[in-house]
Amino acid sequence: MAEAVSPFRQPPSLDLSDDNLAESFRTWRRQMDFYMRASGASEKPKKTQTAIILHCAGPQVQEVFEHFVFDENDDKEDPIKVLGKLHEFCSPQTSEVIETHRFWNVSYRAPFDAFLTDLRTRAKLCNFGAMRDRMIRDKIVFSVTGKVQELLLRERQLDLQKAVDICRVFELTAKQTKEMSEASAHVDKVTKDKDNLPNESNTDSQRKRGGG
């Protein structure tokens, strides 16, 4: 009797050409762990677990797997050892200089929280240590423009949390102001269109004078 298909959605294939492969692997590995536990695959024999992992990882990983060198021949059927080799492949040693360069070149994008998440993710790779919050704060101040930047520069004791709060409030206020402005413009248009409609009493008088 054929085994029932798992009702749990499999993780997507791992794209080894991704520009940020280390981060993509961490995300994929987390999804893979959840899938293995939820589907009950983690209770299966090691050989079967490895086959499931390679199947989910996709053809690119299956290709590089053939070139992995293991200490023992049986290690190629051990899911922990296979994932360890894949981690090494996807997480080459990074340069703090390069990662810091990438951090400072992140462009601002709305919504603000998406920009903030990007900065925090990249800051982890820069080894800023105790300076991490200050670096993120400075990057925010340098990246935003106009009125919100002016508000940030006015603060004498500007820490990261205060900078985040100011940017979030400014973004929300700008959104609400835009909504109110658009609603007001719509009301004005409706009123103007209504005022331009022919007056019914005047129309009747014109008809009578015309003998209509």
Rank of each mutant, 00 (worst) to 15 (best):
D71R: 11
D71S: 14
D71Y: 08
D71M: 07
D71V: 10
E72V: 08
E72Q: 15
E72D: 14
N73I: 13
N73K: 10
N73L: 13
N73C: 03
D74W: 09
D74G: 06
D74V: 15
D75L: 08
D75C: 03
K76F: 02
E77R: 02
E77I: 08
E77H: 11
D78Y: 04
D78S: 03
P79L: 12
P79Q: 07
P79W: 09
P79A: 06
P79Y: 11
P79E: 06
I80C: 03
I80H: 03
K81I: 08
K81E: 14
K81V: 05
K81P: 00
V82L: 05
V82W: 05
V82N: 04
V82H: 02
V82C: 01
V82S: 06
V82G: 04
L83I: 14
L83W: 09
L83F: 13
L83H: 09
G84E: 15
K85R: 12
K85C: 10
K85Y: 05
K85Q: 11
L86E: 11
L86G: 12
H87Q: 11
H87D: 13
E88V: 07
E88T: 12
F89V: 10
F89P: 04
C90G: 01
S91M: 06
P92R: 03
P92A: 08
P92K: 02
P92M: 02
Q93V: 11
Q93G: 05
Q93D: 13
Q93I: 08
Q93W: 03
T94F: 05
T94A: 10
S95V: 03
S95M: 03
S95I: 06
E96N: 11
E96K: 15
V97E: 03
V97H: 01
V97K: 01
V97A: 02
E99W: 08
E99V: 07
T100C: 14
T100Q: 14
T100I: 15
H101W: 15
H101S: 12
R102M: 13
R102T: 05
R102A: 11
F103H: 07
W104G: 00
W104V: 13
W104Y: 15
N105I: 04
N105D: 09
V106S: 07
S107T: 11
S107N: 10
S107K: 14
S107G: 09
S107E: 12
S107Q: 13
Y108F: 15
Y108S: 14
R109E: 10
R109Q: 11
R109H: 11
A110L: 05
A110T: 11
P111E: 01
P111V: 01
P111Y: 00
P111K: 01
F112A: 11
F112M: 06
D113Y: 05
D113F: 02
D113R: 05
D113H: 08
A114L: 08
A114Y: 00
A114H: 04
A114D: 11
F115K: 01
L116R: 01
L116G: 01
L116P: 00
T117G: 02
T117S: 06
T117A: 04
